[in-house]
């Protein structure tokens, strides 16, 4: 059970970064850390002791496989995370061009 708790702590670290940091790049880093912890949690749920990777090979007769369903879900989520991260970074680089800073307090105060 300790791994679930550590995974949750990793999520909280990312949440802390998103809520308190005032730098756009740091916010993106916090969001990706939260994403990583969710991926890890899904993979942890599907694990079975002494289970094999879910690939059928002729010579092995054992049918004790790790759960393939969470892995399939995480596989799509990783690529979606890359897409959303890239979108955030595109917005960040555009903001830097316009306001010459990554600090969101200054971006707020300038009002257009």
């Amino acid at each position: 059970m300790i791994v679930y708790l550590l995974c949750f702590i990793l999520f909280l670290v990312g949440l802390f970064g998103v809520l308190t940091k005032r730098n756009v790049i740091k916010i993106v880093i916090g969001l990706s850390i939260m994403e990583f912890s969710i991926f890890l949690f899904f993979a942890l749920i599907g694990y079975i002791d002494e289970g094999l990777a879910p690939i059928i090979v002729q010579n092995i007769s054992s049918t004790k496989f790790v759960d393939p369903l969470p892995q399939a879900m995480v596989l799509t989520a990783i690529v979606i995370g890359l897409a959303t991260n890239s979108m955030l970074l595109a917005i960040a680089i555009r903001l830097y061009k316009k306001y010459n800073t990554f600090d969101i307090r200054k971006i707020n105060s300038l009002k257009g």
Binding site: V28, G46, A53, Q71, L75, I78, V79, G81, L82, N85
Partner: peptide, 21 residues
């Protein structure tokens, strides 16, 4: 955790994300 599919995807995606960042 016996998830080689995820490991391959994550290592490549992480590298590309790092390059973009």
């Amino acid at each position: 955790l016996r998830a080689p599919d995820l490991a391959i995807v994550q290592i490549v995606v992480e590298t590309i994300t790092l390059v973009i960042m």
